[in-house]
Amino acid sequence: MKVALFITCFNDTLFPGAGKAVVTLLQRLGCEVEFPLEQTCCGQMHVNSGYEHEASGLHDRFARVFADYDAVVSPSASCTAHVRERIESVGGKVFELTEFLIDQLGVVDVGASFPHRVTFHPTCHSLRLLNVGDRPLRLLREVRGIDLVELDGARECCGFGGTFAIKNADTSMAMLSDKVRHVLDTRAEVCTSADTSCLMHIGGALSRGRTGVRTMHIAEILAAQE
């Protein structure tokens, strides 16, 4: 199957590892992956901040860039939800990674091996906008050697929320401190999720607190063969 990777501007610039892991993983599963270099940003940040007008050019651009692909895969639940809702012409064929693996490729065991203690934070947009349900957990459970521990209060927002983390920094931090406490309670080495934006937020606090807990995108675990 030939698929296009929608990396998202955020991952492209700050978290290339997530994108590389998606490529590795999809190729291992027999997909032919293309990366349309003309892609930039889907416009979610603009729309969610009240700048819908500024986003409309980005929406058109997204639709043009991905028009000719049968399937588009993204390592971001949040951006996937945005394009699915807002960009009618192509939105329906854009899949978040775990949706793509389970619903389109029909695989649960992706042949990964990752012998570490891991906890999973289901991001709000993956849960409530995409309804991915337990797909990420089903994929993680099949990873060889993984010690997957349940996260208390998992469904609760980490406090990132795009510009919310900056505009309402104090409230955001109050939410984050509870999330971090729950992560630490699991004694996991790694906290993973389907959005690097939330992970940057959680990871920023884990790092500031010198906790030694790492954050990794779920693609990086599913691609791993340690």
Partner: peptide, 8 residues
């Protein structure tokens, strides 16, 4: 803006 848009 008093929301993280978590959708709960």
């Amino acid at each position: 803006w008093a929301s993280s848009l978590c959708g709960a």
